[in-house]
Design a protein around this nucleic acid. Structure first.
Length: 421
DNA sequence: TGGGCTCTT
DNA sequence: AAGAGCC
């Protein structure tokens, strides 16, 4: 049996752990640059739709709600705490996202009781409320989780047996677009074919689905029928691409703003490569103007650049990215976003023995590795950006807008929660 | 009016 | 490369 543990309103719940005044209040968390609402407490859900740009919230509602900038350092650490706690009580944990994990359980009689206990332990030890959906496949466990959240009398746990009559009734009133893996586009196309509910999808002809759509949807149908066929990557599976990008707090046409942003992004990309023991053979630098500003000229260039040899050396990557930037920069535009993608990644150890790519002098390679791992370990110990390559302006004009940021209560000594006695 | 990833066609 | 998905 598969269980899906999902943290309730995760970002809002994290904020509430350290600021109990937010309990019972409508709380929304904003995307980077305080752009749009990406997470909501239950109380704000009827007032502000998911994804609404903050500036579009009507003033009379804005007055009533608390909006916070996203504090990923806090959410990331709270996520780790939640799943460390879960891991103490289950053997098989597959983390799926910052706030969700699948667990594999034997279907013993008191599974529901067991999950209730787990849920209260997580709440006690981390302050985060979770719900658990149980069923025979991941897709059905997702639906069970949804049911658990919507029906408070279930106390956060819902077990859906693949064969039970209740399941049919439930799937019949579940719009097809709410099934995991079915987004807006596919839902539209399914509805055009007369498939409007999860039940109709479950009963539909596999061959027909395969013909009209893809194996992905075929697997979803099988999962709805109770046949598990969706495998997730292990958390340690190295990424195939690594992207680092940000939109700017303010649009800019200043080359030095852009070159600083690209330096920071490519440097971060190199760090990410090293953390998964990969090297890149190529990278791509891109710039974007603000597509919502019809009054401004649009320009969205990108430049693919080969690295001189497969590498994760910050110095080489920053230099290559800078040259790519120079080749696409035009000064007559106002840029809104810049980023760097690491491409064509291979495992570092494979690369070292790869005759065709052994293009770099071995001594230089060893020196580079030692320098990079020294930088990484100092940054790990002393805080990120303790050592950086090249300069960096604090509060650069391109940096993020985060006007409503809470403290990083769990990861910074100088931002700990203070209590007055 | 986000950022970062995967998969399939 | 484009287009779909997820959170």
């Amino acid at each position: 049996m598969i269980g899906l543990i999902d943290c309730n309103n995760f970002y809002a719940s994290c904020e509430r752990v350290f600021n109990p005044k937010l309990e019972g209040r409508p709380v929304g968390i904003l995307s980077n640059n305080d752009g749009c609402v990406i997470a909501r407490s239950n109380e704000i859900k009827p007032l502000v739709p998911m994804g609404m740009p903050a500036y579009q919230i009507p003033p009379h509602i804005r007055k009533e709600v608390t909006l916070l900038s996203s504090n990923y350092e806090l959410y990331g650490d709270m996520s780790r705490r939640v799943f460390d706690t879960v891991r103490e009580h289950t053997s098989d944990l597959e983390i799926y996202s910052i706030d969700e994990a699948f667990i594999h359980l034997l279907g013993f009689d008191n599974t529901v009781e067991y999950c209730k206990r787990l849920r209260s332990i997580v709440k006690r030890d981390t302050g985060i409320p979770v719900s658990i959906g149980l069923s025979s496949t991941k897709t059905l466990a997702k639906i069970a989780n949804h049911v658990a959240k919507k029906n408070p009398e279930l106390e956060g746990i819902c077990w859906l047996h693949a064969g039970e009559p209740r399941l049919e009734a439930l799937l019949k009133q579940l719009p097809v677009g709410e099934v995991w893996g079915i987004g807006y586009k596919i839902a539209q196309r399914l509805e055009a074919l007369g498939i409007k509910t999860a039940w109709q999808l479950r009963q539909s002809n596999l061959k027909r689905i395969r013909q009209h759509f893809s194996v992905v949807l075929e697997r979803t149908v099988l999962e709805l029928q109770g046949t598990p066929c969706i495998e997730l990557d292990d958390m340690n599976t190295p990424k195939q691409n690594i992207m680092t990008s940000r939109s700017f707090g303010k649009i800019t046409s200043n080359f030095y703003d852009l070159s600083e942003a690209i330096r920071a992004h490519s440097s971060k990309g190199a760090e990410k490569l090293r953390s998964q023991q990969s090297v890149a053979r190529a990278l791509m630098v891109f710039l974007k103007t603000n597509r919502f500003r019809n009054d401004l000229l649009q320009y969205n260039p990108s430049k693919l650049a080969q690295l001189p040899y497969p590498t994760n050396d910050t110095r080489v990557i920053v230099k290559t990215a800078h040259e790519a930037l120079c080749s696409i920069f035009r000064e007559d535009y106002l840029y809104h976003k810049a980023g760097v993608m690491m491409l064509d990644l291979i495992d570092k150890d494979v690369e070292q023995f790869d005759f065709f790519h052994a293009a770099q002098d071995t001594k230089e390679q060893i020196k580079s590795d030692r320098l990079m791992s020294t930088i990484d370990s100092i940054n790990k110990k002393m805080g990120k950006n303790t050592i950086i390559i090249g300069g960096r302006t604090v509060n650069a004009t391109w940096s993020l807008k985060r006007d409503f940021l809470s403290r990083r209560y769990t990861t910074r000594w100088n931002e700990l929660l203070s209590v007055k006695l």
